[in-house]
Write a protein that binds this DNA or RNA. Structure first.
Length: 222
DNA sequence: CTCCCGATAT
DNA sequence: ATATCAGGAG
């Protein structure tokens, strides 16, 4: 079932997984979550804005947004059109503005305007699914209940041969089984760094990738 | 599966 | 011209 790599290691074996993890830590010792925030609510807002948008653009918007809107009530009571303009550069701005108002109203109705700190509570909030919940839990509360599966983790998991699933939840389950729990958050951050810098969607730079000997998708003849 | 948004890379 | 960008809902 499992195939052998140029390194002689089997795809999906503990040896391959650990080799990739080790190299990711070596490559990106300082990897962290790149959205700027100082409170759980700020992370709650920034993460919703991050859909299909670079972190850089989100940070450019939140720099002033967080000065203007300081509480869940500020977002819930915001004027839709005004909030749209405040977040416009992040894209999907009508949907995101509405989603911020609705999700923050939900925080007011159920949690006194605070962001809850459990997976079960977070995924009940409209606009919050497991990816966003995992980001909030891991980065604002230090709670690691799952594996962040965003567009990069989805893509690299398949390239590494760690999952053949298309359903995000099934990919997350595969990763939780393969990667030791203490590495879930840190490895997710580093997979994302590598996905941006080297293993990008359009034209992965396999020839200069130090993971290539452990990667069944490496295309070294380019 | 499509839609939401527009800038940017290829 | 087309795919992609730290997604989620209908």
């Amino acid at each position: 079932m499992s195939s052998s790599l140029s390194s002689g290691v089997q795809v999906g074996s503990g040896e391959q997984v650990q080799a990739i993890i080790d190299e990711l830590y070596r490559l990106y010792p300082e990897a962290r979550y790149d959205l700027d925030f100082t409170t759980p609510l700020e992370l709650f807002v920034a993460t919703q804005l991050a859909a299909q948008c670079t972190d850089e653009r989100v940070n450019a918007v939140t720099k002033t947004l967080f000065q203007k809107y300081r509480s869940a009530a500020d977002y819930a009571g915001a004027n839709q059109e005004e909030l749209e303009q405040d977040i416009k550069p992040t894209g999907f701005y009508r949907k995101k503005a509405n989603q911020l108002r609705v999700s923050c109203q939900y925080l007011l109705d159920h949690y006194g305007g605070e962001v809850p700190g459990t997976m079960a509570e977070l995924v009940r909030i409209p606009g919050i699914a497991r990816k966003t919940a995992n980001v909030i839990l891991g980065n604002a509360f230090g709670v690691v209940d799952g594996f962040i599966v965003d567009t990069h983790v989805d893509r690299l998991s398949k390239r590494f041969g760690w999952s053949k699933q298309n359903d995000i939840v099934k990919i997350e389950r595969d990763l939780m089984a393969l990667v030791p729990r203490e590495h879930w958050l840190e490895v997710a951050h580093r997979i994302i760094y590598h996905g941006r810098a080297v293993c990008n969607a359009r034209k992965p730079l396999c020839a200069q990738c130090t993971l290539a000997s452990y990667c069944p998708s490496a295309m070294l003849d380019q």
